[in-house]
Amino acid sequence: MPLVSTAELVTDAQAARSAVAAFNVITLEHAEAIAAGAERAGRPAILQLSENAVKFHGNRLAPIAAATTAVARSSTARLALHLDHVTEVDLLRAAHPEGIGSVMFDASKLSYAENVKATADAVRWGHERGIWVEAELGKVGGKEGEPPLDAHAPGVRTDPREAAAYTAATGVDALAVAVGSAHAMTERTAALDHALITELRDAVPVPLVLHGSSGVPDTEIRRAVAAGMVKINVGTALNTAFTGAARAFLEAHPSTVDPRKYLAPAREAMTGTVAHFLGLLGPLGLPESGATSSPC
């Protein structure tokens, strides 16, 4: 199936008062698992390549983007390709030649004024080329290379009035907000500020994005969608499933040297995790009240 755009999937989800899940791709097995999980769940999904994943692949976007695109196009699910957490302008500008139709430009480490200027420039450049641009306001901690950050510390969460001013000044198409989640969580213990999500939904005219969803319990994700979150980002949960399955296989078969032997169960574990998170969104895009089991 041809790639669809992130803009289309987000717009459809918002119209249905639902959300679309976006999953991080690191290896080919990640991309295959996301596509298979979306097919299993009967739902669309977004495949995300982060700046850190591109660095892992030798700072070369083209090979992993081409492989991910090929996987998506061979799937029967509606899938989009997104470039996530871009801080380098050169990588931002590499998205268009690779056919990537959406980018999350991350200037959240900068001061508010610098964030606005850098993001507005990125949005202007992207919109001239038909690229949908997401940005971040607030501090969603846990990013690689950053010190630990308390998601509930004063000044960390996104302020609704500042968010309204920010979206107007930058022209972004979606806004990632800090409401209690954190990146790289391996335990699903995050407690979200659902009242704040509702305030942000009412304050800004663009869809809201939840980063760090791997650490958010099922019930919290469903409540977040009901409160107004439209794009749900998942990364670490896939890596936890991948590594757990690979480790279990190698512990049971310590003489194994063929990577296919342990990559197959690792990929299947990720597939189950993808299907689980997609299942939280419920049929017809409506948040589901059941399905409380943990992901694989």
Rank of each mutant, 00 (worst) to 15 (best):
A66K: 03
A67N: 10
T68M: 02
T68W: 07
T69P: 04
V71D: 12
A72V: 12
A72R: 01
R73W: 04
S74P: 12
T76A: 02
T76I: 06
A77E: 00
A77R: 03
L79I: 14
L79A: 01
L79G: 04
L79K: 00
A80K: 00
A80E: 03
L83K: 09
L83T: 08
D84T: 13
H85K: 10
H85D: 02
V86Y: 10
V86F: 09
V86S: 02
V86H: 04
V89R: 12
D90E: 08
L92M: 10
L92N: 04
R93L: 13
R93C: 11
R93A: 08
A95C: 02
A95E: 01
A95R: 10
H96W: 13
H96C: 03
P97R: 00
G99M: 10
I100W: 09
I100Q: 06
I100T: 10
G101D: 10
S102Q: 04
V103R: 00
V103F: 05
M104F: 04
M104D: 09
F105N: 00
F105W: 04
D106N: 10
D106K: 00
A107T: 02
A107S: 07
A107F: 11
S108W: 14
S108R: 04
K109M: 08
A113F: 12
N115F: 02
N115A: 12
K117G: 05
K117S: 14
A118Q: 01
V123Q: 01
W125D: 12
W125G: 10
G126N: 00
H127S: 07
R129T: 09
G130F: 07
G130Q: 03
I131R: 00
I131F: 11
I131C: 05
I131A: 08
